[in-house]
């Protein structure tokens, strides 16, 4: 499956671009597995990994729960928030 990942807030400072594109061999994966996979990739700097684990994944309409299954599409990586 093809996954496009958009990074926000301080997470994007660790990567050369705000948007990443991956092709995975699996057809689906849970949110928790996706974060573990992402942090295992070579392009993911070691110093960003704790922040990504502390981040939520979301679509453009809602925040996903850790056991939800992702198939394909655009995923947002949302580090801890501080609106207001």
């Amino acid at each position: 499956m093809k996954i496009d990942i958009k990074l926000f807030g301080q997470v994007k400072d660790y990567f050369p671009t705000q948007q990443l594109e991956f092709v995975m061999e699996k057809d689906s994966i849970t949110v928790e597995e996706m974060k573990a996979w992402l942090t295992s990739q070579a392009l993911c700097p070691e110093r960003s990994r704790a922040l990504i684990q502390d981040s939520a994944l979301a679509t453009d309409t809602r925040v996903l729960q850790s056991q939800e299954v992702i198939s394909q599409g655009v995923l947002f990586v949302l580090p801890p928030v501080c609106g207001g």
Partner: peptide
């Protein structure tokens, strides 16, 4: 809960993202 992030800019020229609340479900 709102997906907003703040980066402060300081008179010294430094910048820093503020710590926030995790949305991890």
């Amino acid at each position: 809960r709102l997906p907003i992030w703040k980066k402060e800019h300081y008179a010294s020229g430094a910048q820093a993202w503020l710590r926030g609340n995790s949305l991890n479900g």
